[in-house]
Nucleic acid binder design. Structure first.
Length: 573
RNA sequence: GCGCCCGUAGCUCAAUGGAUAGAGCAACGGCCUUCUAAGCCGUUGGUUACAGGUUCGAUUCCUGUCGGGCGCGCCA
């Protein structure tokens, strides 16, 4: 609908331009006015163009209105305020959306394919512990964004970058080994910065059952005691020597167990990936070395304090960054450069990363590295998800992976259900700090907005169930006389329905799934109002058929929107 | 100290530079012998943190101040 009006307006402006009676861009944006009396769509073109043309805005608006052709979509056009053009759309035009929805079904709201490929990387949590509620927000946001952009015509691939090569994984291995030793009653000091979560015990137990006592070695706590990090590194080195090739099975046991857990968790949450991309594969394929060589060739690397540095300051970062440590081991940043460079090589139009807000300082160096490699940093869009601050019983709950004192995504899902968790997560804009009230999310009170929307869907289905029980039948939707739909609630509903594709387009462009959630709440609100004001089955037949047809369309759009958010549309509640 | 994000109703949050800043919850008052009351209708609630600036017009953009979160590693 919006596009139809916009196109009429553009044609008019083009005509005026050709006659020299209008200057400025004729690609005009229409808005949905907040104020009821301001029509269905508003254009501010007269206001924006008036200055350059040295004309009074209202007079210009009047001229544009006079030049607009008659259309069956438009009842009237008013000029209001400082010079807005307010378009009032005809009821018949609104009614047209109903057959459109029913004809397109599940694909209603899908925009035509735009041929653009998107690689969306999200969650990518280190596999050294279960996902917690912070990761859950990234998962819900990322997956909904993927669905949203798919609906908006993009070709989207989902990817999880598995950090299976770094020091943190060695610390997990060390932690598992300590628990394993304890399981054998061997004396061992648990590493001060190890992972204390209960899941580590499970992995150790599993390991014990699998390989027996073949990994038992004398413990050796190495100095310096005052530097925990250095002591840990020394112990890891010791363990690698002591275990030899067996270290891989220890490391692998932790990795595989955690990865399997994460995959299962996400699958159950409705989040499916097209690819799990291993960091280690970048090491083994030599991609890191090749990428560093490219930077070297461009003169963007140098030696200092025994390490190799990337000249990030040359590309806008605050300071230069180490890519190869003094001990010759590449940093995480080095693999990330290789990883992102490789993403560019794969030829996507948009590279989108979703990162936790604590990584924001990392953005300039990655973009800088891409610029150094001759790639356009603008094609890499990094979206930040702010932390969800947990509250339990009115108290702020702290999270820490290492202490094992945290709420896992799985716990949350079990307590509040996948639907409530997903809806709750995407109800806030991603860069907004979010207070996650666990008690509230757990409660099945009407404060939880997901029920409100799902209930609207279930109510419609229930009407059709009643219809059958009463021995009534639904005729072909196309046979209904929608002209009978004249009630305020009906027009409001149809107006809302026609807005769905606009919401999809705008939400996708802004990367903001929460817009869909807000829209659904509004559509549900119109439905509930309609439900309370009008009867469906207890009216006579031409009208009954028309109303049932409208209900079918509402049900369809509710279902489509919920699908974008990864939330189910229940038939009964 | 520097950088990034944020500050909107009692609470949680919306609002492509537009018109009288909106929802939900909470509070208060109504609505079920009829399709699900997890619902509907109504009332109350605001110096958009503060001070300037840009312009026809600012919650939105710019500068500064205050307050909160995060980051500033040869960790990831």
């Amino acid at each position: 609908m919006k596009r139809k009006i916009a196109s009429l307006l553009k044609d008019t402006l083009d005509t005026l331009s050709a006659k020299g009676e209008f200057q400025g861009s004729t690609d005009v944006e229409l808005t949905r006015p907040r104020q009821e009396g301001h029509g269905d769509f508003a254009a501010n073109v007269a206001l924006t163009a008036a200055k350059a043309m040295k004309r009074a805005p209202r007079a210009l608006a009047e001229q544009i209105r006079a030049a607009m052709p008659k259309s069956r979509f438009i009842d009237r056009i008013e000029i209001a305020g400082p010079g807005f053009l307010n378009f009032f759309v005809s009821a018949d035009a609104w009614r047209g959306v109903v057959p459109e929805i029913l004809g397109q079904g599940d694909t209603y709201g899908y925009l035509p394919a735009n041929g653009e490929r998107v690689l969306l990387e999200f969650v990518s949590a280190n596999p050294n512990g279960p996902l917690h509620v912070g990761h859950g927000r990234g998962a819900a946001y990322g997956d909904s964004l993927a669905r949203l952009m798919t609906s908006a015509g993009y070709s989207v691939e989902r990817e999880y970058y598995v950090n299976d090569a770094g020091r943190q994984m060695d610390i997990l291995a060390l932690s598992v080994w300590a628990r394993y030793m304890q399981a054998y009653g061997e004396p061992v000091v648990f590493p001060a910065n190890g992972y204390r979560g209960e899941y580590v015990l499970g992995i150790a137990q599993h390991l014990k059952e699998g390989v027996g006592d073949s990994l038992v070695r004398p413990d050796k706590v190495l100095p310096p005691d005052d530097d925990i990090e250095a002591a840990t590194d020394a112990r890891i080195a010791y363990l690698k020597t002591a275990l030899g090739p067996l270290y891989d099975s220890l490391h692998g046991a932790g990795l595989e167990a955690m990865l399997a857990d994460i995959r299962k968790d996400l699958e159950e949450f409705g989040v499916h990936y097209d690819r799990w991309y291993s960091e280690r594969s970048l090491v083994e394929s030599g991609a890191i070395a090749r990428t560093l060589a490219l930077l070297e060739a461009h003169g963007d690397l140098y030696e200092k304090d025994g390490a190799r540095w990337f000249r990030a300051t040359r590309y806008g970062d605050e300071k230069d960054r180490v890519v190869v440590r003094e001990n010759a081991v590449p940093t995480y940043f080095a693999s990330d450069i290789a990883y992102h460079f490789e993403k560019y090589e794969r030829g996507y139009d948009h590279l989108i990363n979703i990162w936790g807000a604590d990584h924001h300082g990392y953005i300039p160096r990655v973009k800088g590295a891409m610029a150094a490699l001759g790639r356009d940093p603008a094609r890499l869009q990094i979206l930040l998800v702010q932390f969800a601050i947990l509250y339990r019983g009115g108290q702020r709950a702290q999270m820490s992976t290492r202490s094992g004192d945290f709420v896992t995504l799985r716990e949350l899902r079990e307590e509040v259900g996948n639907d409530a968790a997903r809806f709750f997560y995407v109800l806030r804009k991603s860069e907004q700090h979010m207070d996650f009230d666990l008690d509230l999310a757990k409660s099945r009170s009407n404060e939880n907005p997901v029920f409100y929307v799902q209930y609207a869907h279930a109510r419609i289905v229930s009407v059709f169930r009643q219809m059958q029980e009463r021995g009534l039948a639904m005729a072909e939707p196309g046979a209904s006389d929608l002209g009978l739909l004249v009630a305020d609630e009906e027009l409001a509903l149809m107006r809302a329905l026609s807005q769905y594709d606009e919401v999809i387009a705008e939400a996708a462009a802004a990367r903001e799934p929460h817009q869909v959630a807000y829209y659904l709440r509004e559509l549900a609100s119109h439905l509930h109002a309609y439900y309370n004001a009008q009867a469906f089955l207890s009216v006579e037949d031409p009208l009954r058929q028309a109303r049932l047809t409208l209900l079918l369309a509402v049900r369809q759009v509710l279902a489509n929107g919920l699908t974008v958010l990864g939330v189910s549309a229940p038939e009964a509640m």
